[in-house]
Amino acid sequence: MDIDLGNGILGAVLGVVFATLFQQSAQNLWSKARRRAAGKVRSLTYRPEDGGAWSTFSIGPLHTSALIVEGDGERPIAPGSVHVQVLDGAVELPAELAPWRAEIEAEEARAAAAGERQPVWNGERYAVESVEVTRTPLDEAPEVHLRLRPTDYYTFLAAQQLDRRLPDGSTPRGRWLEPDAPLSAPAFLQCSFGVNIAVVTVDDLLVVSRRGDRVRTAPGLWNSSVNEGLARNIDSSGRHAPDLHAVARRGMREELALEPGEYTLTLLAFVLDVESRMWSAHFTARLTGLTGEELRARTSRGVADRWEHTAMEYVPFRTADVVRHLLSPERRHRWAPLAPALFHLALVHTHGRASVERAEAAAVRRL
């Protein structure tokens, strides 16, 4: 009886061991299969060509320089979880870049004096000192800390020349940016923070805009429904820090003539264009009463910033339709870098990640 009891105990122990090993192996195989399938659709981190730890957003053959730093679309970021601080002291360009800004200022003054064209206005902007994300201890909700410094548009234009040669043959990108640390960059190279909004009408149409040919950044490219940059003279009247939701509402009013009571606004993510070093807060806005045709009629009667857009399209807000629109041959290489990730996140927010990723993968297979 002692031998039978010992054999029984040994068999039970071996059974538990083998079951545990088999379960872990099965879980590993399943996890690996899911990662492979998801990798064909999109990636939410930045991976440089040398195999670093991050990869930018892509869908099939559509590759962008948009790095989704925080947010997955499913879990919105609460307004109270975003903390914006404006630091004292404006951004200063290094001595090597200061002449580039002087060139821009002199050229705009010359063009204005000659009457050749409307000079570029040197608007008051913000540079990004840092974006830090933490988690609350109880529910692990994101807390985003955005630190800004004052700057202006001419400084932004000078710093955008990331691949221009300096006297020693180096470039700003090579000298001050580290490919393996995309979130670490000096503030003078990050003189842009804006909001991008995916607007969906009450009859489920996604609004897609085409940027004007006269804008300095991404002219002629297809873009988000609404794009608005932070402006110190408008968004920080007095001495308070800018409110990102208020900036988004300003963009909705100026570009689509929509008032706050006509939509719900949800913050989805913080995204960085790693090529141009432009930061964005990605929102989605769901109209509560206007159809696509009614919005088209509204904007035909005039909007404040008409010149920023040359065209508007209305795409059925279904994953298959949006992905076909993104991947169509005539548009695939004509998107502003941050727009495809925005539309993906908006789809996930409405339809759920699993459904969106299945539909995206199916659309890519049909190419």
Rank of each mutant, 00 (worst) to 15 (best):
D2G: 09
I3N: 10
I3E: 09
D4V: 10
N7Q: 11
I9N: 01
L10F: 11
G11E: 07
A12L: 14
V16Y: 04
V16K: 02
V16N: 00
V17Y: 10
T20G: 15
T20D: 12
S25G: 15
Q27W: 08
W30V: 07
W30C: 01
S31L: 14
V41E: 09
R42H: 13
P48H: 13
G51T: 08
G52C: 04
W54R: 14
T56C: 15
S58M: 06
S58F: 13
I59Q: 02
P61K: 10
L62Q: 01
H63L: 03
L67I: 00
I68F: 05
R75S: 14
P76K: 08
G80S: 15
Q85V: 12
L87R: 08
G89F: 11
G89S: 12
V91R: 02
L93R: 06
E96F: 02
A98Q: 14
P99G: 08
W100S: 06
R101D: 05
R101L: 07
R110Y: 09
A111E: 10
A114Y: 00
Q118R: 14
P119E: 00
R125S: 02
Y126A: 12
A127F: 07
V131K: 04
V131L: 14
T134L: 02
T136D: 15
E140H: 14
A141S: 15
A141N: 03
P142L: 03
V144T: 04
H145L: 08
T155W: 01
A158N: 02
Q160C: 05
L162N: 03
D163G: 04
L166P: 11
P167H: 09
D168F: 04
D168V: 07
G169N: 05
S170G: 13
P172K: 05
P179G: 12
D180S: 15
P182H: 03
S184Y: 00
Q190L: 07
S192V: 06
F193M: 14
N196P: 00
V207Y: 02
R211I: 03
D213R: 11
D213G: 08
R214K: 13
P219D: 06
G229E: 11
G229S: 12
A231M: 13
N233T: 13
S236Q: 13
S237N: 09
A241K: 10
P242V: 05
H245S: 09
R250F: 09
M252F: 05
E254C: 11
P260F: 07
G261M: 06
E262D: 00
Y263E: 04
T264S: 10
T266Q: 07
F270K: 02
E275C: 00
R277A: 03
M278Y: 03
W279S: 04
W279Q: 03
A281N: 05
A281C: 05
F283D: 06
A285K: 06
A285E: 11
G289E: 10
L290S: 06
L290C: 08
E293M: 01
E293Y: 00
L295I: 01
S300I: 00
V303Y: 01
D305F: 06
W307F: 11
E308D: 08
T310D: 14
T310H: 10
T319A: 09
R324C: 00
R324N: 06
R332W: 04
R332C: 06
A339V: 03
P340K: 03
L345I: 11
E357W: 04
A363E: 07
R365L: 01
